[in-house]
């Protein structure tokens, strides 16, 4: 079993995290284990350094983003969301999702797609913020099951945000 990512960075386990401490410890760890330190070493040493650095990189990415950090915290507490086919039993949320998705699909045929894209982006973002605040308090109170539901919802929202960004990128081309 790999080392606990919070322990690896010497940070207290929790959703709230000192971002600048994370970044500076990341650099220190990289300095200690990066394969470039072993460039004239043996093949085995370089291989080992590479694997360790990959682990440090993965840990950093996992802890850096709030959503993946929350997912990781849930995993540490026995809830595995990775690879699951998420189902949400919240009719209100699902309804809202469907409406937003329809709005996203209607963008292409809109008269003023750019203006509507901006409006939609703001809507996504405010939903994201509300859910993130919910998640924070749920994790703080160790309501793991409830937090897992919120993480699933956030994944939906972030997927919508990504699709919108992709759409905008295609317009630019």
């Amino acid at each position: 079993m790999a080392m606990n990512y919070f322990e690896l960075f010497g940070l207290p386990e929790g959703f709230q995290l000192d971002g600048s401490a994370l970044a500076s410890r990341y650099r220190e760890l990289q300095r200690a284990v990066h394969p470039d330190n072993f460039a004239s070493g043996s093949d085995r040493d370089r291989m080992m350094a590479m694997q360790k650095t990959a682990e440090v990189n993965d840990a950093f990415q996992t802890l850096k983003s709030p959503l993946s950090r929350a997912e990781y915290l849930l995993r540490l507490n026995g809830i595995e969301l990775r690879g699951e086919t998420a189902t949400i039993n919240d009719p209100l949320f699902l309804m809202q999702q469907m409406e937003l998705r329809e709005a996203l699909e209607a963008l292409a045929s809109s008269n003023d797609p750019e203006q509507e894209a901006i409006a939609l982006e703001q809507e996504f973002r405010s939903l994201d913020r509300t859910l993130m605040a919910q998640l924070e308090s749920q994790l703080l109170q160790q309501q793991w099951e409830e937090a897992a539901v919120t993480v699933r919802k956030l994944k939906f929202v972030q997927k919508l945000e990504q699709e919108l960004a992709l759409l905008e990128e295609q317009w630019e081309l």
């Binding site: 410890r25 220190e28 200690a32 080992m48 360790k52």
Partner: peptide, 16 residues
């Protein structure tokens, strides 16, 4: 070699 890698990580953090 594996023990040394872990040691260097602990040193990096304590240095910090």
């Amino acid at each position: 070699a594996a023990l040394r890698m872990d040691l260097s990580i602990r040193r990096a953090l304590s240095g910090r």
